[in-house]
Design a protein around this nucleic acid. Structure first.
Length: 323
DNA sequence: AAAGGACTCAACCGCAGAGGC
DNA sequence: AGCCTCTGCGGTTGAGTCCTT
């Protein structure tokens, strides 16, 4: 036997709310309050609606001080920072954005902000291609979420308990659990020569690429500046197959450092790129902005730990082909 | 101008947790 | 302790609108 329905579904109206229904609900709540019982409210208010529907309509649309319309750049930053830290905890985000509802934020993220982020953060192509790899990787690997660490120097207040695993809802960003790993060495993937078999904190996006952030388990270990996130990414790569069966694979990627103190993402971008060839393996393209050395320099001169250790697992690099 | 694809966002659904009995 | 009800949450849906061809 299933769960008892919350209301008599045969007798409740569904779908968009009419102005008349809005008026009834608003009038009732402003006069009587919710009474702590949403289930009983629609009947008292003279509405043929489910209590949950009334609650949602009130919270997301009718209650005072709801902010509609465009999100500001500041709001974008808060959402991105929170998403990086806590994932899809929309209700917590809503507490940090006065006038915004969890539903608003969720819709905004899913329809606009995520794409905006994805367009500015580019990805390592070889991490994009073996999708199944990463899906299984992300679902089988536990991470420690940072709690308040990356926000301790900001105005953002995140007090909610955090999940210790990412088993069900993929995040697009990962941040360092900095407080736990002081004075250890942070290892990050330094070049595109990274096999997807390697475990690292890169999660899959639905359609375009990945954002990779240095994370807590594999690359863990310590960032002295507790508010800095490191990421790497890549733009759309291209591949062409040769008649001999080899493939020519071009990539163009970035490494960046997000300075949470300054909310600064773009200053630290460096682009690098190159080719993959079955015979030659990966090799760098000197015409692009940055060499690997420059990227290392970029990160080492940022305000994160100077002891960053670039980790390239050469033993696994050449094992996989992506096309 | 029309068709169809893409996008937006309000609303719904089911689940988990809290709290009462 | 176990069951039940209610609330709150996050994922998903689909109607309406916008955009492109």
């Amino acid at each position: 036997m299933g769960r008892a329905p919350c209301c008599d579904k045969a007798n409740v109206k569904k779908g968009p709310w009419s102005p008349e229904e809005d008026r009834k609900l608003k009038d009732y709540i402003q006069t009587h309050g919710t009474g702590g019982n949403w289930i009983a409210l629609p009947q008292k208010a003279g509405l043929r609606r489910c209590g949950k529907s009334c609650r949602l309509r009130w919270l997301n649309y009718l209650r005072p001080n709801i902010k509609h319309g465009e999100f500001s750049d500041d709001e974008d930053k808060v959402i991105c920072a929170l998403y990086a830290s806590i994932g899809s905890r929309w209700s917590i985000m809503a507490t940090q954005l006065p006038g915004r509802t969890d539903n608003d934020i969720k819709n905004y993220w899913n329809t606009k902000l995520k794409k905006k982020m994805m367009n500015s953060l580019i990805t390592l192509p070889e991490l994009r291609k073996p999708l199944q790899h990463l899906q299984s990787f992300s679902s089988s690997t536990n991470y420690s979420y940072p709690s308040q660490s990356i926000f301790q120097n900001s105005n953002i207040n995140v007090n909610a308990p955090l999940s210790s695993s990412i088993s069900s809802s993929p995040s697009y960003l990962y941040s360092t659990n900095t407080s736990s790993y002081h004075d250890q060495t942070l290892s990050i993937p330094s070049s595109p020569r990274i096999n997807a078999d390697r475990q690292h904190p890169v999660l899959q996006s639905q359609d375009h690429g990945f954002l990779g952030l240095v994370s807590t388990e594999t690359y863990q270990q310590g960032v002295k500046d507790s508010s800095t996130l490191v990421f790497f990414g890549g733009d759309q790569a291209s591949c062409s197959s040769n008649s001999d069966g080899s493939c020519h694979y071009e990539y163009r990627s970035t490494v960046g450092v997000y300075d949470n103190h300054r909310n600064n993402l773009s200053d630290s971008y460096k682009e690098f790129g190159g080719h993959y060839d079955k015979e030659k393996g990966y090799y760098e393209d000197s015409s692009l902005d940055s060499s690997l050395e420059e990227i290392k320099q970029l990160i080492s001169t940022s305000n994160i730990d100077n002891n960053l250790n670039f980790f390239v697992d050469e033993t696994k690099v050449e094992k996989s082909m992506y096309y």
